[in-house]
Amino acid sequence: MSKENKSKKLSRRDFIGRASTGAVGSIVLFPAISSGNDKREEKISKTNFKMLGTNSLTLKVNGKKISAKVNANTTLVELLRDHLNLTGTKVACNSGECGSCSVLLDGEVVYSCHMLALDAQGKSVTTVEGLMDGEKFHPVQEAFVEEDGLQCGFCTPGQVMAAVSLLNNNPTPTKGEVMNGMAGNICRCAAYPKIIDSVLSASKKMKV
């Protein structure tokens, strides 16, 4: 609950600990979970039904190879949040209407609530947890903090991922291009003007 001000010193550990894909290297998930905590895994395998899928799936998540057993109807966001404990990706509508669950699939932004996990077979998924380079923020993350491109922050991971994808495809967008490119991500707090500023500022940072 304590909110230490970490504006200059948020360490990667701080959130890797909470939202980890586990130890370095390839991980086999059966039942699909790894939190780096053996006791916890054991308990989950005993009590948690959602992990009992029958379909094998191999994909990369934030650069790490993941093998998992999932149900045919498990969505990509369920795999990320419930199985891999990557709770940075949010769900606000669960039907492809708002963009809170945006992640990158082979570099392109997708709604992870609107996609089956099995459809990510062999692909590479990047979530908000995978954006940092070591201890360093992605320029988009940096810009969102500096320009205050958020309020409650719940849609923010989705906004950040949409912005990364937009800038990957168009490194120097106009304001209009930002507005069009980000229109699939609803922010009910309507921090839109500052999200636009954030994306434009990130574009400048990435040029350098």
Binding site: S7, T47, T87, G88, T89
Partner: peptide, 26 residues
């Protein structure tokens, strides 16, 4: 002054745990 919000880093990295993210083993 325009001080950046002190919880900004946790919100842009996905480290912020909302009630929606809260879970327990059992």
């Amino acid at each position: 002054k325009s001080i950046p919000r002190i919880d900004g880093n946790e919100k842009v990295t996905g480290a912020a745990i909302y009630t929606f993210d809260k879970t327990f083993v059992n």
